[in-house]
Amino acid sequence: MPPAAPRPNPLEDLRYWWDSSVAWVNHHWLQIGIAVGAGLVIYFLLSLLRTFALKRAQSAPGQFTLTDIVGRVIHKTKSTVLAIVAIRLVAGYANPPAIILATIQFVFTIAVVLQAAIWAREIVIGLIQRRAAEGHNETLTNAMGIIRLLISVALFAIAGIVILDNMGVNVTGLVAGLGIGGIAIGLAAQGIFSDLFASLSIIFDRPFRVGQAIKYDNSSGTVERIGLKSTHIRSINGELLVISNTNLLSKEITNYAHLHRRRVTFLLNIVYQTSPEMLRALPGLLEEQVKAAGHEFIRSSLVTFSASSLDFELLFDVFSEDFDQVTAARTDIAIRIVEALGEAGYEFAYPTQTTFTAAPDGTMIMPYAESPKPKTAPARTAKPG
């Protein structure tokens, strides 16, 4: 049976490290002094650069601009990180022992990774706040607390994994465990996270905003509030529709806010007794009324022969985003058409039906009594003379 390996003695390791450090200082004191001086100069230059960049960024006008975000990132740069970077840059010149160099490298890795996580957090949060400020989105502003927490947890979890990987720890199992845990949490809160990400999609993609009129599925109304889980829409009839963000994005949405023009359609029913000349002149007459009102005429034509009328279609555009103005324009055009057609001798048709009856032998029978024929005086015969 082989003898058991001797257990390491921490005191002996500490004594060995101390003796190596003392020997290193005694033999390389000049290089150490030069490295310390160079490190101080580097730290001073990095601090001066940070101060200069921070002043330039803070002096720029506006809030939540790209310059403001850069200034916030620079402001979050720690002086400790600058000192560790300076030490790492000059450490190789002093020829330190392997254990000291490894310690410096380890501390440098931790500092840089954590600082990178802080920078990334400030950049992402700054961009989100900038987006919220552009759209004046109260929902996103109120949700910044939970968004900041989620971003911080995600970034620092990644930073922790990177640090452990540089320490030589096998992080494969840890990553797999975090992945399984994330899947479990996602399945448990699937509805909440689905609505949350749908809300962020609405906020950033902006298919509509608060105060805009939209049509969702078979409902129409004005958006009153965009929440983290649901959106409130005030319908045309006055009801408040509360729709989950996931369901809202799963259907086609029509936004009426950016209609620079609105198309209006009229269907005119003209009687069959109208002459062909008048039918040919009708599209031109309708075009005159539309242009006289200051709107854009699209077309007018006979579209079908209905049971009781000849149907003409009129299409024109009203250049306005205000639906009230469009409604007023439609009313004005309708009244103009009624006046013009009445003056030109046109008649509007209304549903009528004529019934014809026949006798059993097929002889047509009038649906009303025939007018009596006028009586004629009997002819007088001449008397023989």
Rank of each mutant, 00 (worst) to 15 (best):
P2S: 11
A5T: 10
Y16L: 14
Y16C: 08
V22K: 10
W24T: 03
H28S: 10
H28N: 14
L30W: 08
Q31R: 14
I32N: 08
L46V: 06
T51C: 08
A53D: 06
A53Y: 12
R56W: 13
G62V: 07
T65M: 12
V73Y: 02
K78T: 15
S79P: 06
V81L: 07
L82V: 07
V85H: 04
R88Q: 13
A91N: 10
G92C: 00
I99S: 13
I104N: 03
V107N: 05
T109K: 14
T109Y: 12
V124F: 09
A133D: 06
G135Y: 13
T139E: 12
T141I: 09
N142T: 08
A143L: 10
L149I: 09
F156Q: 06
G160A: 15
V162G: 04
L164S: 01
M167G: 12
N170L: 02
V171K: 02
G179T: 13
I180P: 01
S194D: 00
D195S: 03
L200D: 02
I203S: 10
I203N: 06
R206E: 09
P207F: 02
R209T: 09
R209L: 11
E224D: 15
V242H: 03
S244Y: 08
S244I: 01
L248E: 02
L249E: 06
I253R: 13
I253M: 10
I253K: 13
S275V: 02
P276M: 04
L285T: 09
F297W: 14
I298L: 14
I298H: 09
I298K: 14
T304S: 13
L310F: 10
F319M: 12
F323L: 12
F323V: 11
I337V: 11
V338K: 04
E339A: 12
A340V: 01
G342W: 07
G345K: 03
E347D: 04
F348K: 07
P351S: 03
P351M: 09
Q353I: 09
D361L: 03
M364P: 08
M366C: 05
A369G: 09
A369L: 11
P372T: 05
A377Q: 08
